[in-house]
Simulated scan of single mutants.
Amino acid sequence: MSRFADRSGPIRLGMVGGGQGAMIGSVHRVAARLDGAFTLTAGALSSTPEKAQASGREVGLSDDRIYSDYTQMAQREARLKDGIEAVAIVTPNHMHAPVAREFLKRGIHVICDKPLTATLAEAKKLKALADKSDALFVLTHNYTGYPLVREARARVAAGELGDIRVVQVEYPQDWLANAPAPDNKQAEWRTDPARSGPGGSTGDIGTHAWNLSRFVTGLQPEALAADLHSFVDGRLVDDNAHVMIRYQGGARGMLWCSQVAAGQENALHLRVFGTKAGLEWFQEDPNALYITPIGGPQTRITRGSAQTGDAAARMTRIPAGHPEGFFEAFANIYSEAATAIRARRSGVGLPEGVTFPTIDDGVEGVAFVDACVRSSKRNAAWVTL
């Protein structure tokens, strides 16, 4: 049982990273507070003391709960009677593992941005520690929080598509189509292999596409062949990848991720085809899911409608026709995490239907990047995962 089992009220949340100028930090903070389940209590929002103080005050933290050293934060918060119960890690990839270790070994739950770590070796070591810890580990593959992604998953599991034959998933963007300005902080670390890891687009957005296809289909990949390329001169990580996938049982898949696709904003798109029907979901139009039986008419299923089942309804906040989007899906991951943490508080099992990406999903994502890099170095040879 967690050392926080006797505590009640909103879950006290800390954050490492996500200071001024960091987009994903603000997204996590909005998601965490949307349902009132968390209250941001402490943070090491920057390793620079002045920026840490300014960032912490900006989001309403008390001066004595603002840190510039995450180790000091973990040590002190673990001793406080009102110390944090969970920490959100929103740093560049190479810092995920060292930060998570400090909190896991003190029994503080971890909510970590993806990818899990910069390297596969780090991911495996972190999983070994997480498995021994009393703390939960939640990975924010936020696209799995969309109601109609949950609906798609439920329909595949119920056999509505029949046996899966083909999985097509793509995630094109264009924001790195040219060399970024020197002061573009988000682009700067994402294109530095020392901080992002060996994968560029594969790690940043390819892992999302990979996780989404795994979450919806449940298929287990056994091998892949990847052609990774950097189109921008001087770039040290991939900015485009085409990946063919072989699944256990005979299904085939293809994943395309790109950050140099002109005109594409955040075009995550999943299509799954089976022996009975196919489905399609598009992240930029997330309130619709399309199901088409072989030889039959296409059905458009909308979020919050009578056509959706329990899995989607659990993720839905407002009636049909009122669009829900990115923040709500992200908040659904935090809501599921809060339910799991409260279950730990009470010493009971996880309620039926609660699901969220875990450290196992994180290891799979980093293994995907590692396999893509290995394959591409061998002229897109097939490699096992």
Rank of each mutant, 00 (worst) to 15 (best):
R3D: 06
D6L: 06
Q20I: 15
V30K: 12
G36Q: 10
E58S: 15
L61A: 00
S62Y: 01
Y67Q: 01
Q72M: 05
G83H: 00
I84T: 01
A88V: 05
I89M: 03
N93H: 14
H96N: 04
R101H: 07
H109E: 05
I111R: 08
P115F: 08
T119D: 09
E122M: 04
A123H: 07
A128M: 01
V138C: 14
T140I: 09
H141P: 07
H141L: 14
H141T: 12
H141I: 09
N142R: 13
Y143Q: 13
Y143W: 15
T144C: 14
A158N: 08
G159N: 07
D163F: 14
P172F: 02
Q173M: 08
Q173C: 10
P182I: 01
Q186T: 13
T191I: 07
A194H: 08
S196A: 14
P198S: 10
I205Y: 12
T207C: 12
R214S: 14
R214F: 09
F215Q: 12
T217L: 05
Q220I: 06
P221L: 03
A223N: 09
A223K: 07
A226D: 06
D233Q: 07
D233Y: 04
G234D: 04
D238W: 08
A241F: 03
M244Q: 15
M254K: 05
Q259M: 14
Q264R: 12
H269S: 11
L270N: 06
L270V: 05
G274Y: 01
G278T: 01
Q283L: 11
Y290C: 08
I291A: 04
Q298G: 04
Q307L: 05
T316S: 13
I318G: 13
P323W: 02
N332H: 13
T339E: 15
G349R: 11
V354R: 03
G362D: 11
G362C: 08
G365A: 11
C372K: 08
V373D: 10
K377D: 13
